[in-house]
């Protein structure tokens, strides 16, 4: 049993995008605020703060979760992947390029969360179906694009990652 009193700052150690990081957090600090304010990774956005919009979605030990419904203390000792880790050394990753190419974002507020969910979907299986993409996308709200370009971008990104350039251009 480990007790952290209200207001008490406890050291939280995580692996953020492959890099060991640690910072202090009080019990009530949400993982979303910890990532942004304590670790300085502001690519993860904070929208509704009650789990509905999906903007704050990050990968915790590999799987997409709502950072606003997770406490910073609950992430201690775990791996966190955020949008900052998605770009490769040469710039944007295949998923990000496909989003730009297919106009899958306008204001971009929801995009980091969607990309974290979709990166996991494509890792789980390189050939996601449109239904699978829509199923995962149901956990996110986008008020600009109307979803169709997002679905198209994810399918194209998966194709590009498989080296299936013809589908990627479709």
């Amino acid at each position: 049993m480990k007790r952290s009193a209200a207001g008490e700052q406890t050291l939280v150690a995580v692996v953020l995008n492959g890099v060991r990081r640690s910072a202090r957090a009080e019990p009530r600090m949400l993982l979303s605020d910890f990532i942004r304010q304590r670790l300085g990774a502001t690519g993860t956005h904070v929208g509704c703060e009650h789990g509905v919009c999906g903007a704050c979605t990050v990968r915790l030990d590999g799987v997409p979760v709502r950072a606003c419904l997770t406490l910073a203390l609950q992430a201690d000792g775990r791996r966190i992947d955020t949008i900052e880790g998605l770009a490769g050394p040469g710039g944007m990753g295949a998923l990000q390029l496909a989003f730009r190419r297919h106009h899958a974002l306008q204001c971009g507020f929801c995009t980091p969360g969607i990309l974290m969910s979709m990166s996991e979907l494509i890792e789980r299986g390189p050939r996601p179906t449109e239904d699978e993409v829509r199923e995962v996308l149901a956990g996110h709200l986008c008020r600009c694009t109307g979803y169709t370009p997002i679905v198209r971008a994810v399918l194209a990104a998966a194709a590009a990652m498989r080296g299936d350039e013809e589908s990627a251009d479709a």
């Binding site: 480990k2 007790r3 952290s4 209200a6 009080e26 009530r28 406490l71 203390l73």
Partner: peptide, 17 residues
């Protein structure tokens, strides 16, 4: 919004809870 302050207890066994 953010939660009000609370103590956090990481439970290792059901008896503690």
């Amino acid at each position: 919004m953010k939660p009000a302050a609370f103590d956090h207890v990481r439970i290792d066994a059901p008896e503690e809870a």
